[in-house]
C-alpha cells in the first residue's frame, strides 16, 4: 500500500526548506565580502580571519567550553549516582513516586521558570553565605541542575535493560560491593552513561535562557555573545561565528547518531 502521498511529499520538501533556508542564509552571508547590509559583494573569508583575532569571541568560546565540560563532568557523576540510587535500591512505593516526580521536574519546567528559580536560590545563598556571586560558577551549577535529570533518565533506561542477574552472580562469587559497582555495574552501564553525558554536553552548549539569567559580567558564552551582538545590530562577523557553531552542532549530532543508533531521547 502507498504510505505517502504527493501532498505529504511536497509538504515535507517545504518543511525542510523552511527549516534550512534561514541557516543557509547565515552561512551564505558569512562569506559575503560586503561590509554593510545584506547586499552580496563577492566571496570572501575575511570575517573568519577577523574571528580568530577577536579576543572577546575567543574568550566567549573558551567560557562556553569550560562551562560545558565542567558541568557535564559533574552532572554525569551525580546523575549516574542518582539513577543507581533510585532504581537499584528498595524504596517505599509512595516515596518512589514522589522521587520520580522530583526527577522529572527539571525536564518539564520551562526554561524561564527554571532560570527564575535559580536566580532566587543563588541570591538567597549569596545573602546568607556571601558565596555564589553571579558568574561562571553559578552558570556551571545552573547547568548541572538541569543536566542531572537528563543523565539520570538516560542511565535509568540502561539499568532497566541490563537487569540484576550479573550483579547477583558477582555477589554469589563473593565480590564485595565496591568491586560489583566498579567491575560489573559501571562497565555494563557505560553506553547509558555515555549517552547521558553527550546529551548533557549538547544541552549545555545549546542553552541560552538559563545562562542569560545566571551569568555575570565576565562570563559571556557564545550564545550570549551572539544575542548581545544581534541586539546591537547584525554584523557579518556574527554570521561567521554562527556558521562555525552550526558546523560543530552538525558534527556532534552525526557523532551521537553514529554512537547510539538505537537510543532515542
Amino acid at each position: 500500500m502507498k504510505r505517502t502521498s504527493t501532498l505529504s511529499n511536497l509538504t515535507s520538501v517545504f518543511i525542510f526548506i523552511f527549516l534550512y533556508l534561514p541557516m543557509l542564509s547565515v552561512v551564505m552571508f558569512s562569506f559575503n565580502a560586503s561590509d554593510m547590509g545584506l547586499k552580496w559583494g563577492g566571496f570572501s573569508l575575511k570575517w573568519y580571519q577577523q574571528l580568530v583575532h577577536n579576543e572577546l569571541i575567543l574568550w566567549a568560546a573558551w567560557n562556553t567550553l569550560v562551562l560545558a565540560v565542567v558541568s557535564t563532568a559533574f552532572s554525569t557523576l551525580i546523575g549516574t549516582m542518582l539513577a543507581i540510587g533510585l532504581y537499584r535500591f528498595p524504596w517505599k512505593k509512595r516515596t518512589a513516586g514522589k522521587l520520580n516526580v522530583l526527577l522529572h521536574l527539571p525536564v518539564v519546567t520551562p526554561d524561564i521558570i527554571f532560570a527564575v528559580a535559580l536566580v532566587i536560590a543563588f541570591s538567597v545563598i549569596r545573602y546568607t553565605t556571601g558565596l555564589f556571586e553571579l558568574g561562571l560558577t553559578t552558570m556551571i551549577v545552573g547547568h548541572i541542575t538541569f543536566q542531572i535529570a537528563f543523565v539520570a533518565l538516560a542511565v535509568r533506561g540502561r539499568l532497566e535493560l541490563i537487569g540484576h542477574d550479573v550483579e547477583e552472580a558477582a555477589c554469589d562469587l563473593y565480590a564485595g560491593y565496591w568491586r560489583v559497582l566498579t567491575r560489573v555495574l559501571l562497565p555494563m552501564l557505560k553506553p547509558g552513561i555515555i549517552a547521558g553525558a553527550m546529551l548533557a554536553f549538547t544541552l549545555s552548549l545549546d542553552d541560552f535562557v538559563i545562562s542569560f539569567f545566571t551569568c555575570g559580567p565576565k562570563s559571556t558564552t557564545l550564545p550570549l555573545f551572539i544575542y548581545a551582538s544581534v541586539k546591537r545590530g547584525i554584523t557579518p562577523e556574527i554570521h561567521a561565528l554562527s556558521t562555525i557553531v552550526m558546523l560543530v552542532t552538525i558534527a556532534s549530532v552525526a557523532l551521537m547518531q553514529k554512537l547510539s543508533p538505537n537510543t532515542k531521547h
Binding site: F16, P22, S25, V26, F29, P223, I226, I234, V245, Q257
Partner: peptide, 30 residues
C-alpha cells in the same frame, strides 16, 4: 537515519542562531 539526522540538526542548533537567522530571511531586501 540520514533523513532523521537532517531533522535533528535544526533541533540541536542553538536557539539564538536559528532565531536571528530569520532576521536575514525576513529582511526587506531579501
Amino acid at each position: 537515519v540520514l533523513w532523521l539526522t537532517v531533522l535533528l540538526v535544526p533541533f540541536w542548533t542553538n536557539l539564538v542562531i536559528r532565531t536571528y537567522a530569520w532576521l536575514l530571511v525576513l529582511d526587506g531586501n531579501m
